[in-house]
Structure formats: structure tokens, C-alpha cells
Amino acid sequence: MSQQQSTPPPKPTPIPQQDNEFYWEKAKAHELWLRKCSDCNEVYFYPRDISPCCFSRNTEWIKASGKGTLYTWGITVRPPTPAFREDAPFVLAIVDLEEGCRIPTNLVGIPKDPDPEKMAAHITHGMAVEVAFEDRTDAISVPVFKPVDS
């Protein structure tokens, strides 16, 4: 009983790794940065030094515009872990960024309703979205996306 009343445990927080420390540093400053291959010009997610497109080592960091469209989404009604108990129902999303790569995220700013079909009425595939940031801990902020007009 008291378990149900208590604050949910913290959501999973990434532990920055050697290949993505820069990404999380920038996210902390509420900026979204991506890796770009200087040889084939492909922009890719998630960050890694060697391009997964042509295997070039000639890659760089670029600052993303933060704009994109909604590739697909779902609404989690049954929280997958207790950490998400108070968030549910919430919107899972995969966003196609303007730069040409795809990022997993949450779609925020959708009126919450216990009936996911009512929430779904506010969401369409391909809708324009833009980045926002959620501060999770002192060290970690995560990029989320919201409808452009909200």
C-alpha cells in the first residue's frame, strides 16, 4: 500500500560513455548535437566516431536544428517499470530529424488522458515536432520533442 503512495524510483539515466560524453554535455546545455560523416555527408544517430554509412573515420559533430517530423509513436498505458508509474499514459516516439537521422524520444505536450485513443487524436504520423529538454539529474538532461504549434 505505502509502496503505491511513495514517489516512484528515478527513471533510467544514461551513464555517459567515452563515445558520447560530448552528446550528454551538450544535452545538459539544452543543445542537440549529432555526428556527421565528412566523406559521405550522412548525419547519423547515435553518436559514434566511425561512420556506419561508409565506415569513414573522417567524422565531426554538428549542432542539430532540433526540428523534425514524427516517424512513429505509441502510447504506453501499462508502465514498463515503476519509474514510469506516474507518467503513464505517455507517448513513445521516434522522430525523423531534419538532418536525416532518426532518434528515439518521448513526445511531450499531448493532453494526458487515461484513454489512449483520446490522446491519439492529438497525434499524427509526420507531424512537425521540435526538441525540448527534460532535466533528469544534475548531470543529465534528455532531449524530448513537442508538437511545433503547442
Binding site: W73, G74, T81, L92, A93, P104, V144
Partner: peptide, 18 residues
């Protein structure tokens, strides 16, 4: 764990529903 779990992409129902 690094890029999807923080958003609640945990377990198959989430991933497959998307």
C-alpha cells in the same frame, strides 16, 4: 539502455507497438 530506456522503451510491448 543508453538511448531508449530513459524514455520508457523498456520491454517488447513498447518497441513493437511503435
Amino acid at each position: 539502455t543508453q538511448y531508449e530506456s530513459p524514455y520508457g522503451f523498456i520491454g517488447a510491448p513498447q518497441n513493437y507497438a511503435l
